[in-house]
Design a protein around this nucleic acid. Structure first.
Length: 386
DNA sequence: AAGCCGTGGGG
DNA sequence: TCCCCAAGGCT
């Protein structure tokens, strides 16, 4: 048995003290909690955003689609993708019936590709398990693939007026500043405290303003309480905000702890035959999961073996170095060295038999889902061809 | 719990 | 140029 001091649970008092320290000054909380929702709702109706493409509808399909796309992605980036998806898949049934490759190609460039696979799986679950209608409660919504607690609350609030709180990056930033919450919000303990606080701030049961309230949380963080230069002069909570009162807008919320970004290297084989290039599908999980990309290897000998397997037996062929590409991910940097292998148009190679690899016309690159840097690389290739 | 998972824009 | 991270979820 471990020493008691190392494993004993905190007493109720210690927990209360800990929570209070996490949540900041009690005086601010007490004076703020009751007035928070009505103030926010009034501000949103007067100064919030009302004309985003996914607003002014209670169609849960549209709300859901936008919320998934907006996960860790800014509004301006999402807008064109949202329009293309809605045009191609007007209903959840249309999306559910589509081939996954169509979904992936439309998602290409948006990032976090597991979202696209979960989007497709979720659409199929809604059709097959819920009769084509999204469930109304946040709890049921959160059981679907790709929908977590915050996204479920957003969908439920916007589509059905359900009283559940979101907790996204905007809300975390607002709460950290207004209530003076210390610590990195990505840390479980801090996040749990923020969920409790966010729940305590909800409008009263029966309030009809859940859509304006939820949108207000997002709008406040996105338009006023921004990361860089918060516009406190226009903020409805300025008079009660801990960060504003203490000039600590830059310090709250606490930044993510630093960690070194590892660097990985790879060679990419750009095998060109006339106006076609050889592509292969990546594994369903991991970086660029489910997208199409170029064959990779650690050295030229590996790439030569790959080319040989596809059908090139002339050892005299030259791999021509192209301009290296540096691509930064969330948790590492990838140094790409592209090597061009130009084949005669008449060269015999494997047929486009399998669905996992084959020749693709440079003119058709938009029809397959390509990683952003690969697409850029191949578009440059198209340029040199003209 | 902490690491994995993209891309683009702002400072 | 480099750092930070955005309407997070999954494992």
């Amino acid at each position: 048995m471990k020493p008691l001091s190392a494993t004993r649970r905190k007493t109720a008092t210690e927990q209360a003290v800990s929570l209070a320290q996490t949540l900041g000054p009690a005086s601010t909380r007490e004076s703020m909690v009751a007035g928070f929702a009505p103030t926010l709702i009034a501000w949103q109706r007067e100064h919030g955003r009302h004309d985003l493409p996914w607003q002014n509808t209670r169609d849960a399909y549209r709300v859901w689609l936008s919320e998934i796309m907006l996960q860790q992605t800014q509004v301006s980036t999402v807008i064109p993708y949202y329009a293309r998806f809605l045009e191609r898949f007007p209903t959840v049934a249309a999306l559910a019936a589509a081939p996954i490759d169509d979904v992936m190609s439309l998602w290409a460039g948006l990032g976090y590709y597991s979202r696209a696979r979960n989007l497709h799986r979720c659409a199929q679950a809604v059709v097959e398990q819920h009769g084509g209608e999204f469930p109304i409660s946040a709890e049921r919504l959160a059981e679907l693939p790709g929908i977590g607690r915050s996204t479920a609350a957003a969908i439920a609030a916007f589509s059905f007026g359900v009283r559940e709180t979101i907790l996204d990056g905007n809300v975390k930033r607002v709460l950290a500043r207004v209530f003076g919450i210390e610590g990195f919000p990505g840390e479980k303990k801090i996040e749990n405290a923020m969920w409790l606080l966010a729940e305590s701030l909800l409008p009263p049961v029966g309030d009809v303003g859940m859509d304006a309230y939820t949108q207000g949380l997002m709008d406040l963080g996105a338009t006023l309480c921004t990361r860089g230069r918060p516009d406190c002069a226009r903020c409805p909570f300025a008079a009660h905000c801990v960060a504003n009162a203490t000039g600590r807008q830059r310090e709250l919320p606490a930044a993510r702890p630093r960690k070194a970004v590892p660097v990985r290297h790879t060679l990419m084989l750009v095998m060109r035959r006339g106006a076609q290039v050889w592509l292969q599908r990546r594994p369903p999980s991991g970086i660029w999961g489910g997208l199409w990309s170029l064959p990779e290897g650690e050295d030229t000998a590996t790439l030569a073996r790959i080319a040989d397997r596809i059908g090139i037996n002339d050892s005299a062929v030259e791999l021509q170095p192209l301009t290296p590409i540096s691509h930064t991910f969330t948790h590492f940097r990838l140094e790409i060295e592209p090597l061009l292998l130009d084949l005669p148009v008449a060269a015999k190679t494997l047929q486009l038999a399998e669905a996992e690899a084959g020749w693709v016309a440079l003119a058709d690159l938009d029809s397959v889902g390509l990683p952003a840097p690969v697409k850029k690389l191949l578009q440059g290739l198209t340029g040199t061809l003209l």
